[in-house]
Amino acid sequence: MITSIFNKSKPINFVIVFFIMLLAFSVANVKPFLESVSVSFFFEKTAWFVVCYFTILLFNFIVVKNSLTKNNHYQILLFGLFFLMLPQCSLDGSVLMANIFVMFGLRRLLSLRTQIKIKKKLFDTAIWFAVATLFYFWAILFFILIFATLLLYTDNRVKNWVVPFAGLATVLVISISASVVIYNNFFEIINLSTTTSYNYSNYNTMPYLIAITMLFSFGVWASIFYVKLVQKKKKTYRPSFKIIFIYVIIAFVTAILSPQKNGSEFLFLFAPLAIIMGNYIESIKEKWFKELFVSVLLVVPFLLLML
């Protein structure tokens, strides 16, 4: 029943995911809203919800454009359910913005598959990742993805390896210039926090433990099959799927290094995990097991709301 709804690309799927996202966002923001009821606060939160939903639309565009899943909408359902599992992800605006810019960079990076305008795409990717770093320092780790991609395409041209540094330098120069003009200070805009935290005491609650356990266990299980599935993909698309796997590893490291363990650090994991698990769901041949797998992912987030 559930799988039949999202098994095909239908407009109604976006409506369903919209309400899932709205529920997740409302659960996370109802308490702050009640503590500071005002028109400006309402419009501010509405704007952040638009950002959250735009993230899903951008994610779906990237997946469809690069054929990262078949013609279905499992990926957006999973992305929305991950939000519902950890609704705290919508509370940190810096992480939300950083995640969007990382995904813009991913979009350009995956387009290298065509091997057209390589330098421009590498430059664009570096700029997007650098802007993401301005919002959230540890997003700088995604620069590793650029060089990993060059290795996957066995690109030995020195110029292409230098281009990402040019993109990073461009954002740095523009940021310093803007900081001088606006604040009369060289590094006011680039006020980055390089701190890390390994204090996981915030996770010591039942909703956190269940949500993180599900993400980790289901993610690892799906990843095992994903690695096997990659070898069956067309040779031209294979690097794109490998990039997603490297992406999820970097996102996991980013979550570990996060200076604040408040749930928002898991946001970077949602996109690659949704793709990996979406591919796994597609590969399940037993209909009853596919329904069970998706049902658990669907029901548990709603149950967590009652804890």
Rank of each mutant, 00 (worst) to 15 (best):
V27H: 13
V27C: 08
A28L: 08
A28F: 04
A28Q: 10
A28T: 09
N29F: 03
V30T: 13
V30F: 14
V30P: 05
K31A: 12
K31I: 15
P32V: 15
P32D: 08
P32E: 09
P32A: 08
F33W: 09
L34W: 07
L34T: 11
L34G: 11
L34K: 10
E35N: 15
E35T: 11
E35C: 06
S36V: 11
S36Y: 09
S36R: 13
V37D: 07
V37P: 04
S38T: 09
V39M: 06
V39N: 04
S40C: 05
S40Y: 13
F41Q: 11
F41K: 12
F41W: 07
F41Y: 10
F42P: 05
F42I: 11
F42A: 12
F43A: 06
F43V: 08
F43G: 08
E44H: 10
E44Y: 14
K45G: 06
K45H: 10
K45R: 14
K45A: 06
K45Q: 15
T46D: 10
T46E: 12
A47D: 03
A47W: 06
F49A: 02
V50G: 15
V50N: 11
V50W: 05
V50L: 15
V50H: 06
V51L: 15
V51R: 01
C52F: 02
C52M: 10
C52P: 01
Y53M: 13
F54E: 10
F54I: 13
F54G: 12
T55S: 15
T55A: 14
I56S: 11
I56K: 00
L57R: 01
L57D: 05
L58M: 10
N60V: 03
N60H: 06
F61K: 11
F61P: 01
F61Y: 13
F61G: 07
I62Y: 01
V63L: 00
V63H: 00
V64Q: 02
V64T: 07
V64P: 00
V64G: 00
K65W: 05
K65V: 15
K65T: 15
N66T: 12
N66D: 01
S67P: 00
S67Y: 07
L68R: 04
L68Y: 03
L68T: 10
T69A: 02
T69E: 03
T69F: 00
T69P: 00
K70C: 04
K70D: 12
K70E: 10
N71T: 02
N71Y: 07
N72E: 06
H73T: 06
H73I: 00
Q75M: 07
Q75I: 03
I76Y: 02
L77C: 05
L77P: 02
L77E: 05
L77Q: 04
L78A: 09
L78R: 03
L78W: 02
L78V: 04
L78C: 08
F79C: 15
